[in-house]
């Protein structure tokens, strides 16, 4: 227990990096995932195809493989990414976007088709129809599953530990090595810091959900 306190600064470094990975990849995934969802409901076949392709690849590939692709395979074919957090952020974003896309898409589908038809009937283009009419109404159903996706992302950042990124899990592994007598405590410490992110996220999800339900 004391050694956890003693290791606090080390934890905090790892925690900061985990938070950073989750925040950056989370924000990027929300944007990319929403764009992909727009692709998937686009009137243009080619865009729908691209959207479907990215989503199916992202959803059906284990995250570790996605990491391997960006860390080892891409450099192998001559595209070199600087080591460190960038490949991790890209891998996490590509992977998470697929899930964001599916959450947003199911939200879009929950909005009645008549809303989009009425929007198009007054002359709004497909992007305006989506951003002004459909997405604002989809938000209500989309927020809870999105928060779940972001919570999963937070935990998924730990995969980066295997790829030379010393985030929270890698930190815990190091600490377990440095304090062999307190391995359990050290790992509980790691778990605690993940909860510091995910429990408030869940609470925020709950309160947003209640708020949007009321405002209807």
């Amino acid at each position: 227990m004391d050694s956890v306190i003693e290791a606090l600064p080390v934890y905090l470094d790892g925690f900061r990096l985990t938070l950073y990975l989750a925040a950056i990849s989370g924000a990027l995934s929300l944007v990319l995932g929403t764009v992909l969802a727009a692709f998937r409901v686009s009137p243009l076949r080619s865009l729908r195809l691209i959207g479907t392709l990215v989503v199916e690849v992202g959803r059906n590939t284990p995250l570790t493989l996605v990491f391997i692709f960006f860390v080892f395979i891409l450099p192998g074919i001559g595209i070199i990414l600087p080591l460190g957090t960038l490949p991790a952020i890209i891998a996490l974003t590509v992977y998470t976007s697929a899930f964001v896309c599916e959450a947003v898409r199911s939200g879009i589908n929950s909005v009645g088709i008549g809303q989009a038809e009425a929007a198009r009937a007054i002359g709004l283009g497909s992007v305006q129809t989506l951003t002004l009419v459909v997405l604002p109404q989809a938000l209500r159903t989309v927020v809870p599953p999105l928060i779940n996706v972001l919570i999963a992302l937070t935990k998924n950042t730990s995969v980066a530990a295997g790829f030379a990124v010393v985030e929270l899990t890698a930190t815990g592994r190091g600490l377990a090595r440095d304090y062999p007598a307190d391995v359990i405590w050290m790992l509980l410490g790691v778990a605690f810091f993940y909860l510091v992110i995910t429990i408030p996220a869940g609470a925020i999800a709950g309160s947003i959900e209640r708020r949007v339900v009321f405002s209807r």
Partner: peptide, 14 residues
């Protein structure tokens, strides 16, 4: 479409 007004059976107000 902006030149053709449409009124639906189910209103479809936003």
């Amino acid at each position: 479409r902006s030149d053709v007004g449409m009124v639906f059976q189910s209103f479809n107000l936003f």
